[in-house]
Amino acid sequence: MKIQFELNGAPTAVEATPMARLLDVLREDLRLTGTKEGCGEGECGACTVLIDGRAINSCLVPVVQVRGAKVQTVEGLARDGRLHPVQQAFVDHGGAQCGICTPGFVVAAAELLARDPQPDAITIREALAGNLCRCTGYQKIIDSVARTLSGDEEAAR
């Protein structure tokens, strides 16, 4: 069936089986491969996208359920060639190592920062507990989110 939704700010239509995983539609049909698959069962968070502003595991969403929704993937975080502040922070503070979990982390962190611009360490840990990382021990990821610059600071760089 034809599924229409907003993808990274642009209207999108795709022909798909209704129960197809949003993850597969993004990766295989729309060729947005920044969203990763680590487990296929909602444990690792590598496939995290924002649906109407909320962080969701795209491996657990049948594409039929995003009709009319706003979907944002990691590819949609950077604006006008500038990294999203949390992406920049991951680059600057060692938040990415092998990188396979990184898109999921930055998307989940973007959701957190949108509702709480200055989260403390435990808030960050709770918000990112749905994303598994095997490289960092999480400390540099927590640091990256905690040190993400606000818009003003970003402008002053």
């Binding site: 909602g42 968070g45 995290t48 909320r54 962080a55 969701i56 595991n57 657990l60 969403v61 989940a108 959701e111 957190l112 709770e126 918000a127 990112l128 507990a129 749905g130 994303n131």
Partner: peptide, 12 residues
């Protein structure tokens, strides 16, 4: 509810 999965699961 805060122990159900994690944020992504709680959102859905």
């Amino acid at each position: 509810a805060r122990t159900v999965g994690a944020r992504q699961i709680q959102n859905r």
